[in-house]
Computed example of a mutant assay.
Amino acid sequence: MRVRHLNAGTMCPIGRRRVNGTGSIFQRARMVCHCLLIETHDGLVLVDTGIGLDDIANPPRLGPKWVRQTTPRLDPAETAVRQVEALGYSRGEVRHLLLTHLDRDHAGGIPDFPNAKVHVHRREYDMAVARTAPAPKGRYITDQWKHRPQWAFYGEGGEDWFGFRGVRALGDREPDILIIPLPGLGHCGIAVRTKQKWLLHAGDAYFFHGQMHASPRMPLVLGMFQRRADMDRAMRIQNQERLRTLKANHGNAVTVFNSHDPVDYERCRCGQHGDVSLTSSP
């Protein structure tokens, strides 16, 4: 199973030291939208979609406050669809979109793959799409799925995976791709088994690589943003502890990374773990 790491959206908020933990508070920080492109027996699978072409064509739909605070680069070449095409594939070859959750910087590329099945946690769908459960005000951009894609839903059940519960995302066709519920902030992680080890895309379950250390640390502004985004703070903290334990006890078998940390992204993209086939994506 071939896996590529893509950055489908760079964000450059002011205050690098308080966001990235290095540099000056007067410099621009760097955050990414870390996605995976997976070659499977059932076509291409994209884990998260980042910022999409429609977002770039109409930035106000992302929300003026969000755009002002995050200062996204809005480069069409960074979109997942343009990177897929640059690799020699067509957008139609992407058959499945596995989303950690439906926030604007994770779901923006959904309409760029209109024929792909969109896989999400059921509770996330109920909040963002069906609106049958209460959702934080202004969290979702419903235009990102106004074309009414085909949805697939997942719950809390499944088989044991390193102490977590994992549901086979594509059934028995691809038993080595699992949906891992991680409630609290990001609703799901996506686990993918390569020849060497498992990869766990933990979505927004944590924001900063230092949170996975034995003595967790977090830059000030990033920590404030994480707390504002909390849906269940106690559950988010509990899942972060579970992820730290996973990394400490099974780091040789599982590589854990999140959606927005450039350190996590570069470690994976540059092959420091030696477990994936890589592309020179932005």
Rank of each mutant, 00 (worst) to 15 (best):
A80S: 15
A80Q: 14
V81A: 13
V81L: 09
V81G: 07
R82K: 14
R82S: 15
R82F: 08
R82T: 14
Q83L: 15
V84I: 13
V84Q: 09
E85Y: 11
E85F: 10
A86Y: 11
A86D: 14
L87H: 13
G88I: 09
G88F: 07
G88W: 08
Y89C: 09
Y89N: 08
S90Q: 10
S90M: 00
S90E: 12
R91S: 15
G92N: 14
G92L: 08
G92E: 14
G92S: 13
G92R: 13
E93I: 12
E93G: 13
V94K: 04
R95A: 12
R95E: 09
H96L: 10
H96R: 12
L97P: 03
L97Y: 07
L97G: 05
L97D: 05
L98G: 02
L98H: 06
L98D: 03
L98V: 07
L99N: 07
L99C: 13
T100F: 00
T100D: 05
H101G: 13
H101D: 15
H101R: 00
H101W: 14
H101L: 06
L102V: 08
L102T: 04
D105I: 00
H106T: 11
H106D: 09
H106G: 00
A107C: 02
G108K: 11
G108N: 10
G109L: 07
G109S: 09
I110Q: 04
P111I: 07
D112H: 05
F113T: 05
F113L: 01
F113I: 03
F113V: 06
N115G: 11
N115F: 07
K117D: 10
K117N: 08
V118L: 08
H119P: 05
H119N: 00
H119S: 00
V120Y: 01
V120P: 04
V120W: 04
H121T: 09
H121G: 15
R122C: 02
R122Q: 10
R123N: 11
R123K: 12
R123M: 10
Y125T: 02
D126Y: 03
D126E: 13
D126Q: 10
M127G: 03
M127K: 12
V129A: 01
A130N: 01
A130C: 00
R131H: 01
T132I: 07
A133D: 08
A133V: 09
P134R: 01
P134G: 07
P134N: 00
P134C: 03
P134Y: 03
A135Y: 01
A135F: 05
A135G: 06
P136S: 01
P136A: 01
R139P: 05
R139E: 06
R139A: 06
R139F: 06
R139W: 04
Y140N: 09
I141D: 14
I141E: 15
I141P: 06
T142R: 14
T142H: 14
T142A: 15
T142P: 14
T142C: 11
D143S: 15
D143N: 13
D143T: 15
D143M: 14
D143F: 12
